[in-house]
Design a protein around this nucleic acid. Structure first.
Lengths: 229, 229
DNA sequence: TCAAAAGTGTTCATCTTACACCCATGG
DNA sequence: CCATGGGTGTAAGATGAACACTTTTGA
């Protein structure tokens, strides 16, 4: 089977920058390429968009196929179209960025990717294609977005402590924050619900656990009050 | 001549949302389609991306070819890939948004477009394809961006009065601002250079003319001080 | 009883907002 | 001399930044 067009066409792919967080650092998921070009190099999960398939669907599908991840927060980032970015031919890639909580997402490359793993964003291996630039753009977007949109919660477990939340902001924004001011500010926002539970199995005073209250957030958003950390 | 691929490929286009400003309103440039589909309907300037051509180049080229505009501020916005957005086949469009000052840019459709004209954003005709959604996205981006990036200056003449600048913000953000507070704030930012010139041919006290001081802005940006209106 | 992290208020400086009148110019 | 927009300051309230000690818990 083959397809014929009057004019030449670039190929179209999606690539996903998936962020995860643990105690140590902000991480990105990479897969080891099983095929040429850049065979053996680390790259972002992604692949070709099918004709008739929306871009969002393609990103979701590739993520599922290559990393086993589903139902993560996924948002279009930017489209990379430099004709030299792929050595084979002109391949335009629509990049997505995704946030997920690392806990319980042990990655197994359950498909044709050779291998999948999390890497700290400040210690990435050399990447295939222009994927370094894509990760860079995703990081910029994350940094810009996290301060005025409640996206960071996707990186945390469902129930989290204020200290975990503060550390998330500190890791993403790469600056330290004052504990008292941080708590005052986020509690005043009114989007955290106290679960009346506390941490278990910690060898110090157990912290309260909070949840992000999506409904409350939507209400505030409609009222024109804006989230800002 | 024809081109052959092993897998089907979507077509790739760019579309540009070009904003301009006059005393009355924020405007968008549209062209009347000379060919099917949607022949006779208004649409965003744009067209097919050539293989081997970068997306930015394609956007610039299409803008030049279809509207005669050059050297406008042009930035990638979002990529629209719904397979149904073009009735012919799956066409993925990378949308750009552009800012230009309307003065002296009399549009002449100097090419194959039937006609080109400016329309107030709050009074657009029915548009071809999903171009309404694209304009919407561009407006959202403009509103979000103008408050913390000095992009609005692209919409003003090179030398402008503070009142013109204030009106620009009021039109984009759709809310009124206090004259004294506005002036205090923007002058304190330190990115406006007083040209020592004043308006001519006005039948009232002539206002001072200012220029945007790009160098000063870059310095402040490097120092980590951020622009915010 | 010690180590480790949780939790909590006040002060000072800065920024935001609201608000009204005189000035310069051309017709 | 009048119409039109240009230009200016102050006070009150809200917000942001700096800062240190006590509490709880498990080992």
């Amino acid at each position: 089977m083959s397809y014929n067009y009057e004019y030449a066409r670039a190929a179209l792919t999606v690539d996903c920058v998936v962020f995860g967080l643990d105690d140590e650092s902000l991480k990105v998921m990479l897969i080891e390429r099983a095929i040429k070009p850049f065979k053996g190099k680390w790259a972002l999960p992604g692949g070709f968009v099918n004709v008739g398939e929306s871009l969002d669907d393609a990103a979701e599908r590739e993520l599922r196929e290559e990393t086993g991840l589903r139902q993560v927060f996924l948002e279009q980032l930017y489209t990379f179209g430099n004709p030299k970015r792929d050595p084979r031919e002109h391949v335009v890639s629509v990049a997505y960025f995704a946030l997920t909580n690392l806990e319980g997402h042990d990655v197994k490359a359950d498909t044709d990717a050779a291998n999948a793993a999390w890497f700290a964003v400040d210690d990435l291996p050399q990447l295939a294609f222009d994927h370094e630039a894509i990760v860079e753009a995703a990081l910029d977007r994350l940094k810009g977005k996290v301060r005025y949109r409640p996206v960071g919660f996707e990186l945390l477990p469902e129930k989290f402590t204020l200290t975990q939340m503060q550390k998330m902001y500190e890791m993403i924004l790469e600056k330290e924050m004052d504990k008292r001011n941080f708590r005052k500010k986020v509690l005043k926002l009114g989007v955290l619900r106290d679960t009346n539970e506390v941490q278990k199995d910690v060898s110090h005073r157990a912290a309260k656990l909070y949840e992000f209250d999506e409904k409350a957030y939507r209400k505030l958003e409609k009222a024109g009050i804006n989230f800002e950390v």
